[in-house]
Structure formats: C-alpha cells, structure tokens
C-alpha cells in the first residue's frame, strides 16, 4: 500500500525537486536527502518507501538534470503521478527504469494521504481510501520494454545480447 503525497501545483520544476546547490554530486543517496526540498522541506521526513508523489500539469519542467529522477528514486518514492510531464523529465524517467504515470485529472481523483495500489500491467490505480479504480494512460510498448529492462542502458545491453542492436527497434 502506497500513500499519496499530493501537491496541488502545476509546473513543479527540477529546481524544486533537486536544487542546483546539490548538483555537485550524482550520488543518489546524497541527492535523496534533498528530494523535493524547495517545494516541501518536510517531504524527506514523511515519505515512506513506495509512497507516491501526485501533482498537476508539467511536472519536472526546467533543467535536463537526471538528478531529479535519481533523487526521487533514491528517496524510494514508488511512483510519480502527474496530470502531465515535462518532456525531458519524462524521458529521463523511462531511461532510469522509473514509470511516469500520466493521469488526467489526478488532482481531483487523489487526495493527500489516500492509499493507492498501482497496477502497471493493467494501467489502473486502485484508490483504496476512496474506493475508486482509476485508469491511466499506459506508456507506449517500447517504453515499457525499456522500463522493464531497468532503463535504457540495460535495455541496449539486453538487445545487443539478443543479437539485435538499438537500430533494429
């Protein structure tokens, strides 16, 4: 069971997710200590492994820093659900094997503190607090393959092992 941490905000940007003052390292554990710091200084104290961040539109806008995804992964966040994602952040998530869940109307369907169960295969979120089941837009198949392989580089490696390069996809 994962708890939802809802921020009623659009445009939560990479500077808020991991401020540049911490970009002098790429260590996920170090970055995790400051995850979401400029949006909510309490976040790292209250987040439990597997918990879910829920936001409005354009989550992850701004910098290309993959450190934002590493900070979230390092903080053991289970998923990010947003009404929409900024492009580079979205792509970085997939490349890191982290499934970004795009859910229209997320802020109306999930309240802060709601308990959620996510079924990635089925593309649904069970909101057990509200007793609802919500369908989300699944990733395209090739992106699911990358996520399931654990990220882009693992994916490339496995494809090569299978005897077919990235070119053949």
């Amino acid at each position: 069971m994962a708890k939802a941490h809802v921020y009623q905000r659009d445009h939560v940007n990479t500077d808020e997710i991991i401020p540049a003052r911490y970009l002098n390292t790429d260590d996920a554990a170090d970055l995790a200590k400051h995850c979401m710091e400029d949006l909510d200084t309490e976040f790292v104290k209250k987040v439990q492994p597997g918990d879910v961040i829920v936001c409005g539109d354009d989550f992850g806008c701004g910098s290309s820093r993959e450190h934002a995804v590493w900070a979230i992964q390092g903080a053991k966040v289970g998923a990010v659900i947003a009404q929409s994602f900024a492009r580079i952040f979205y792509r970085n998530c997939i490349n890191c094997g982290f499934y970004p869940i795009e859910l229209h109307g997320a802020l109306e369907k999930i309240n802060d503190g709601d308990e959620l169960e996510i079924d990635y295969q089925g593309g649904t979120i069970a909101n057990t607090t509200q007793g609802t089941t919500i369908a989300f837009t699944p990733l395209p198949d090739f992106a699911i393959e990358i996520v399931n392989d654990g990220g882009l580089l693992e994916h490339i490696k496995r494809q090569k092992e299978k005897g077919k390069g990235q070119n053949d996809r």
Binding site: L152, Q166, R169
Partner: peptide, 18 residues
Amino acid sequence: TGIGSTDLAAAIATGILW
C-alpha cells in the same frame, strides 16, 4: 535538444537516439 545523462551515455556510445 536537451537530454538527460542516460540518453547522453547512449548518444556518446552509439551516436544514435530514438
């Protein structure tokens, strides 16, 4: 266009991106 570090690694190694 801007990319993250994983794409960058792939681009450096292969010279190809999707």
